[in-house]
Design a protein around this nucleic acid. Structure first.
Lengths: 203, 203
DNA sequence: CAATAAAAATGAGCGCACTCATTTTCTGAA
DNA sequence: TTCAGAAAATGAGTGCGCTCATTTTTATTG
């Protein structure tokens, strides 16, 4: 197997990387992003202060490393949840509802995370975000495809643009929710209104 | 007039505030946001270092103060530009094109600004962003209203949700452009595709 | 098993955003 | 005019993200 093929050097790097990410996840969720210092992460991971920055160029990058895998899972779960509904609109709302529920476990952290996701610097992190977006838009496109087969969506509708627009509408309102412009009931109402308007146009 | 009614204290505050904002604008555009230190702004404005932070709670807040007025103007200009086109889709694309042109004068700064606008902390700044959004969505709603009168948009279409969704689609792609996921031609194509899809649904 | 080179880790140090105890400026009452 | 109290400005200080010259660890070669 691949692990055996790794030398001590590679193995140590993987271990250290995993320890740093685990320590960061733990501290971020317990003390918040701003409330956690890079030194604390280093201490918890058992490395020197500078070492953290050989695995993540900035503290912000660390945030993405930490939540990337977790969010991939959430997207998958959202897709499964969505299929409980029968109408496309309800499916899409269930899909985004799962994402929001995830964010609501820790709103300040979600705020920091979304802010960071929207404007990534390092190209390594961009690849992670791209992967995440591809997965997310792909799931939405699946839902649209199924609805198209059942006649709820016009046959000529291009699926990726439609999926992108659905997400764009969600993303816009999510920003409002996380920034405090919208409370949850208003968010739900606005999201349903706007997604409904869009999907009616596709029928 | 109002100016006369102000005491020395109020007048000084206004002067200082204006000097700080002007100095910040100048330095941000010449040296970039990260390239400018709060001390440089203070020096250029002729105040002590700490004084800057009595007018803006953070350096990020300063960014919003600096560009708020400017962006209101750009939105107004975008609205005027939009009316040169005859089709609604072209109007909306011209509208957003003006905004993009503004951002393209300084992409790194635009990136920082958009990132900040999306997730504002202080409530004073939130009021500014709200004002900006209201102006922007209002203009889009005007365009939709005019198109509705000419029959290009279904009579039953709720205008604010439609305007919000148009902006959401633009905002999503703008993030891609500013973060380097999209170059300008791809951005233009994606925007036209997605806005077109949405507007066709309103017809 | 050296000897050498390359990679990785280290931690003291730096720059900058932001704070806060102190000082200065202003106002309105006596 | 004087003066007390409030508001605002000040700038030295603090903490933290991040850097980088140095040290330590690992791989390679003879």
């Amino acid at each position: 197997m691949a692990a055996v093929a790794l030398g001590r050097r590679e193995q140590n790097k993987l271990d250290k990387r995993a320890r740093i990410i685990a320590a960061a996840r733990d501290l971020f969720t317990r003390k918040g992003f701003e409330g956690t210092t890079s030194q604390e992460i280093a201490d918890a991971a058992g490395v020197a202060g500078g070492t953290v920055f050989t695995y993540a160029r900035t503290k912000d990058d660390l945030l993405i490393l930490v939540f990337h895998d977790e969010m991939l899972d959430v997207v998958e779960r959202a897709y499964v949840d969505a299929q409980d509904a029968s109408q496309l609109l309800d499916q899409v709302i269930a899909f985004f509802g799962t994402l929001v529920a995830y964010h609501e476990r820790d709103l300040p952290l979600a705020r920091t995370l979304m802010r960071q996701l929207g404007y990534v610097g390092a190209s390594e992190q961009r690849a992670l975000v791209r992967e995440l977006m591809r997965g997310l838009l792909g799931r939405l496109a699946f839902l649209l495809d199924a609805a198209q087969a059942k006649g709820g969506v016009a046959a000529a509708t291009p699926l990726m643009p439609a999926a992108r627009s659905l997400f764009a509408i969600y993303y816009f309102h999510l920003g409002g929710l996380l920034s405090g412009y919208l409370d949850r009931p208003r968010f739900d109402r606005a999201l349903r209104t706007d997604l409904g308007l869009f999907l009616r146009g596709l029928a």
